[in-house]
Nucleic acid binder design. Structure first.
Lengths: 331, 331
DNA sequence: ATAGACAATGAAAACGTTTACATTGACCCT
DNA sequence: AGGGTCAATGTAAACGTTTTCATTGTCTAT
C-alpha cells in the first residue's frame, strides 16, 4: 500500500542503505546514484515513515503541548504563535486539553512522552514533583507557571512566565487616580499559579495605596461564570477587576442586562487582552499580558532548550472605556 | 533512561513475549505471572512506547487535524468539541495550521500521514484530486467542504458539512420583512468551499425576493479585514451580511468609529455564532452554524468511518440587536 | 503406560528506518 | 608488481513493540 524505502531501493537498483543515504543527502553517495534514487522515490511518491525513523534516531520531530482549556482564546493565541514559529521547522504538534484537571494532564503527559521530543506545559495544574519528574525524561517548557521558589530546577526545564506585577500595579494606580478606594477581584482557579500571582500583585498594590480589596472566587474562568458571579455581587460594588477578559466580558454582559452603565456606575478591568481591540463594547480596559509573546518565548525555549532557560513577558495597563471616575457619593 | 518492556520482562523473570501478553491482558497468561509482570511494570514506571507499538500494529492511536487558521474561534470551537469526544478514547491529536495556503496544507498532510490513523481536513483548500489521493492511504474526514457534485467518493472519505441554506434564506426573509431591498455581502476566501456555498445561498434567496445584492470581497476573514473593508463601502449601504462573525464585528467597530448607529442607520448580520452570546454590542444578529456541532459530527465520523460517511448540521437565524427596520427614506 | 490435547511460555520475525561495520574495487606510490 | 588508501556501496544490527510459531510440560483418556 504505502511505499517503503526498500521499494525505492529496489526500483533504483541499490541497497536499502544506499537509498537511505541518498535521500538524506549523505556526501558518501555519488551524484549519479543519488539522482537515480531520488527519481525512484519521486516516481513511487515515497514518503518516509516518521515512526520508523523516530524509533532508530530517538527523535520524533514532534512536540507536545498541554493546556488547561483549548477553547480559551488566551491559549489559542499562544498556540497560534507557537505554531507559526515551530511549524517553519517542520515540527509536528501534538495537543492535549487537560480540562483544568491535573489527573487528565498527567495522563496526557504519559501518552505524549513517548512520541515527542519535548513538551510544553501551559498553566500546568500538576505538582512541582510531577513536572520535574517529567523533565528528567525530556526537555520541558513550563509556560505561565513557575516552580516554587528555592526548588532545584532540572537541567531540561525552562520557565516562561508573565510578569503581572507592573500591569496590576498600574491598574490599581489608575483606579486610585480615578478616585476609587475599594475594589472587587474575581479570582481564577485555585490550582493555577498565575491566579495566585495575580492575586498577590493586586493585594500588594492595594495595600500600598490603602485600597480596600475583596476577593471573590470564580469556578471556571470563562464568560458564563463571569456572568453568573456578577449577579451576586455586593450591590455597592463599583470596581471589578477580573482574572481574565472572558470573565470581565461576562460581568459587562450582566451589567447591561441590569441597566448598570459601564463606566458610569461601574468600572471593569479585564486581564490578558486576548481579544481583538474593540470587540466588546464598551471597549475593555485591560491588563495586557500578550499570550502571543508568551507563545513566541515558549517557541524559542523549545527550539534551543539550553539557552532560554527562563524568560518573562511584561504586562502593561491598556486604558480603554470600561473604567471611569468614582462617583462623588461613593468616595 | 526510559524503561522498556525488555527490562520489565527481566525484572519479572519472564520472556519479553510473556511480558507483552501480560500487560495487554492476554488470556493466555496465568494470573500469577500476570500479577508479577504488572508489579514489575509499576515498580519501573513502565510506559509503553507508542512508536514501537505503532510500527508493528500499524495503528498509531493518533489522528491529524488540519485547519486554515487556528486563531479563528470557529475552528477553535470545532477543535474543542472534537477533542473532548476523541480524547476520551485516549486518542492523540496532531494539529496543523495551513494558514489558508494549499501548499502548506499538502505538506502538513505529508508530515502527518505516517503518524496518524486518520485525518480530518477542515475547510480544506486543496483540490478534490489531492484530497481523494490522501483518502486512499487512510480514512479522511472532510469537514466544511464537499467534493464537486458527481465526483466518485472514495471508500474512506466522509463529508461533514454545514447546510447554510436555511440560515441564509431566513436572514434574507428577515431583512426583507424589515423593509430592506438591497444588501451588501462581504465574501469569504475565494478558495473556500463554504464561502461559495454561502454566496450561492444568499444569491438564491435574494433572487427569490427581488432583493438587490452586491458582493464585496474580503482578503482575510478576520476582524481587522472587516474593519478595513467597512471603511470603503458604498456610503448608502444600509445592510451588511458578513461571511463570518469576525468580519461582522470589524464592521461594527468601524461603524462605531464613524458614529453610524447600528441598527438604526445600518443593519449587520454575522455568520457562525462562534462567540459567546452578547460578547459584542449591539449583540450580533447572526446565522448560527454551530462549529461545535460540526466538531461533534466530525468526531463521530473519525470514530466509525464506515457508518458516518456523510452528515450535515443545519443553520438557523438568530435575531439579536444588530438588525433593524429600513428607514423610510431608503426603501 | 502412552498418545494426544492443551495450557503456559519462549524464540524469533516483523514493522520502516538509520548507521556502524564489512566489502569491493580503483587508484597511487614505491 | 603489490601493498595501502580511499571512495562507493552492501550487510546487518538496532530501536521497542506485537504476534506467529515452536517448545515445554501437565493432564486426561484409553
Amino acid at each position: 500500500m504505502t511505499t517503503t524505502i526498500r521499494q525505492v531501493a529496489a526500483a533504483a537498483g541499490v541497497s536499502l542503505a544506499t537509498a537511505s543515504r541518498a535521500l538524506s543527502g549523505s556526501p558518501a553517495v555519488v551524484e549519479s546514484t543519488r539522482k537515480r534514487v531520488q527519481q525512484a522515490a519521486d516516481d513511487l511518491d515515497y514518503n518516509p515513515s516518521r515512526l520508523g525513523r523516530s524509533l532508530v534516531t530517538g527523535s520524533t520531530g514532534n512536540i507536545g503541548l498541554i493546556f488547561p482549556d483549548i477553547s480559551n482564546p488566551f491559549y489559542t493565541q499562544f498556540l497560534a504563535e507557537l505554531e507559526s514559529v515551530v511549524a517553519a521547522r517542520d515540527i509536528g504538534i501534538l495537543i492535549g486539553d487537560a480540562h483544568e484537571d491535573s489527573h487528565r494532564e498527567a495522563s496526557l503527559l504519559r501518552q505524549m512522552v513517548t512520541q515527542v521530543d519535548s513538551l510544553v506545559l501551559v498553566s500546568s495544574r500538576m505538582t512541582d514533583a510531577q513536572i520535574t519528574a517529567a523533565a528528567v525524561r525530556l526537555p520541558v517548557v513550563l509556560a505561565n507557571r513557575r516552580l516554587a521558589p528555592g526548588s532545584i530546577v532540572p537541567e531540561l526545564l525552562s520557565q516562561i512566565v508573565i510578569d503581572v506585577e507592573p500591569g496590576f500595579s498600574a491598574a490599581v494606580d489608575h483606579l486610585y487616580a480615578l478616585g476609587h478606594r475599594r475594589l472587587t477581584y474575581l479570582d481564577g482557579p485555585a490550582r493555577s499559579w498565575s491566579a495566585r500571582e495575580k492575586r498577590a500583585s493586586l493585594t500588594r498594590a492595594c495595600a500600598r495605596l490603602g485600597v480596600d480589596l475583596s476577593i471573590v472566587p470564580v469556578e471556571k474562568p470563562d464568560f458564563e461564570s463571569g456572568r453568573q458571579v456578577a449577579r451576586h455581587l455586593d450591590p455597592n460594588t463599583t470596581v471589578v477587576v477580573a482574572f481574565n477578559d472572558q470573565v470581565a466580558l461576562g460581568v459587562l454582559s450582566t451589567c447591561r442586562d441590569r441597566g448598570i452603565v459601564v463606566p458610569v456606575n461601574m468600572s471593569v478591568v479585564g486581564c490578558d487582552d486576548s481579544l481583538p481591540i474593540g470587540l466588546a463594547w464598551p471597549a475593555l480596559t485591560t491588563i495586557d499580558s500578550s499570550s502571543r509573546s508568551l507563545g513566541a518565548l515558549a517557541a524559542q525555549a523549545v527550539l534551543n532548550p539550553a539557552v532560554h532557560r527562563t524568560g518573562s513577558v511584561p504586562t502593561r495597563l491598556v486604558v480603554r472605556e470600561s473604567t471611569g471616575p468614582a462617583r462623588p457619593s461613593m468616595v
